Amino acid sequence: MTDYPTLKEMGISAVESIKRFSLRQERDRDVLKIYFERPASSLRAHSQKFTFAHPRTAIPGQSRHSQAYAELSNSSPVLCSALAELKQLTTAEVPQLSPKAEVLQDLQHLERVMEGKLAEIRQKIECLA
Rank of each mutant, 00 (worst) to 15 (best):
K124N: 10
E9T: 15
M1P: 01
T57N: 05
E37V: 01
R44V: 12
S81C: 06
V103S: 11
R20V: 00
L83I: 02
I12H: 03
A70F: 01
I12C: 02
L43K: 14
K117P: 01
K124Q: 14
D106V: 00
A84K: 14
L79P: 07
K8R: 15
K19R: 12
P60W: 08
Y69V: 02
S81Y: 05
V94N: 10
S17F: 02
Q96C: 08
S41P: 05
S47H: 07
F36Y: 14
L79I: 03
L86F: 02
S41A: 15
S13H: 05
L97V: 09
F21L: 07
D106G: 04
E115T: 13
Q108I: 12
L110H: 10
E102A: 11
A92N: 02
T51W: 11
L43T: 14
L104H: 11
Q25M: 05
A40E: 00
E71G: 02
E71M: 09
E26V: 05
P60D: 15
P55V: 01
L97K: 11
K124Y: 08
Q67G: 01
V113F: 03
G11W: 03
K100L: 14
I18Y: 06
N74C: 00
V94T: 14
A58T: 12
D106C: 08
H46K: 13
Q67R: 10
S66L: 06
K124V: 03
M10C: 12
A84M: 08
Q48P: 09
S42H: 09
Q67S: 11
